[in-house]
């Protein structure tokens, strides 16, 4: 599917002096899982709130399913499911009543709603908790309830804003699997997170946002190709001479060698068999070494190289 689900053009949002979103451009195709990745305060939630018309913005255009998105665009709103960063459910209603309420915001037919509510309960694995009040649920179950409330009406576009914050690994995996299943069923997903592993795991395309700007956009592989660093080799070694460090730097594709706290770190800008060449050299010099680790760059490395700071800063 090549039709555009969401198009954000030159979006600008200011909070007095603070520029929260700075000429942001996004184009999300139908059927994608699109990740908005960025540290806390980078402008992800502001962007989402602008997309949902919860916030007014200073400049730019937003289109959803090729129609301008406005606060009174109820025909568009009917196709959107929202899972907010903060769990937004009624404390006084049970799990089932909550899902029924949020489904009822879109579906008037009682029979159909009943069916959808049941499907949402089963989808999120809340069958045993349907009569529970939110206060009695664990953090993970509460997040699952939040998701069930957002997806029960079977929306075409689902926006999930940090749905796994403060969730245990087991619930997190279940949530991520659920999101991928929703996508397989045909929903377009916008997923915001500052957890790069999650975004990398489920998103087909990713936009990295910092200070309200989109600093990079593409698939995870495309993003990693944007940076020089392609392989990081780490070797535990007692000592190494300055001459050997220089010699290692001279190896093909190696562009940085550092030695600190008995740890030798070698950065390579691509190529293959980098680890074999490094180990051959060290063995030739009769160095004895311990733990060896070779890793491909992460999205954090991408972020670090582009912005000069860690994603988790």
């Amino acid at each position: 599917m090549n039709e555009t689900a969401v198009k954000v053009k030159e979006l600008v949002k200011r909070y007095r002096e603070l520029l929260a979103v700075d000429h942001l451009n996004l184009e999300i195709k139908q059927g994608e899982i699109f990740g908005l990745l960025g540290p806390n305060g980078s402008g992800k939630t502001t962007t989402i709130n602008c997309i949902l018309s919860l916030l007014s913005y200073d400049n730019g255009e937003i289109e959803i399913f090729e129609k301008p998105m406005k606060a009174d665009a109820y025909d568009i709103k009917a196709k959107i499911g929202v899972v907010m960063q903060n769990v937004a459910v009624f404390e006084e209603l049970t799990v089932q009543e909550n899902i029924d309420y949020f489904c009822g915001l879109y579906i008037n037919d009682k029979q159909l709603r009943k069916q959808y509510v049941e499907e949402a309960i089963q989808f999120t694995g809340l069958e045993d908790f349907r009569k529970f009040y939110p206060k009695k649920l664990s953090g993970g179950l509460l997040r699952r309830l939040n998701i069930a409330c957002g997806i029960a009406h079977k929306p075409k576009l689902i926006i999930l804003d940090e749905p796994t914050v403060a969730v245990d690994p087991q619930s997190r995996n279940r949530i991520l699997e659920g999101i991928m299943e929703l996508n397989r069923q045909g929903a377009t997903i916008i997923y915001t997170s500052h957890y790069m592993e999650e975004v990398e795991q489920i998103c087909s395309r990713i936009a990295i946002i910092d200070n309200g700007k989109c600093i990079a956009q593409g698939t995870a592989e495309e993003l990693k190709k944007l940076i020089k660093k392609r392989e990081i080799i780490t070797i535990d070694i007692l000592s190494v001479t300055a001459d050997d460090i220089e010699a290692l730097k001279a190896l093909p594709h190696v562009y940085s060698v550092t030695f600190e706290d008995s740890k030798l770190t070698i950065l390579c800008d691509g190529g293959s068999h980098n680890l074999v060449r490094v180990l051959d050299y060290l063995q030739g010099k009769e160095y004895s070494f311990g733990h060896i680790h070779s890793a491909l760059p992460t999205l954090n490395d991408v972020f670090l190289e582009i912005t000069g700071k860690e994603l988790r800063d």
Binding site: N49, L52, S53, L54, A71, Y74, K77, A78, I80, V82, M84, N86, V87, A88, V89, F90, F102, L105, Y106, C149
Partner: peptide, 13 residues
């Protein structure tokens, strides 16, 4: 409630 009101605001209602 701010979160609930926002959630309801972006619905069809």
């Amino acid at each position: 409630n701010r979160d609930l009101a926002a959630r309801i605001s972006c619905s069809y209602l």
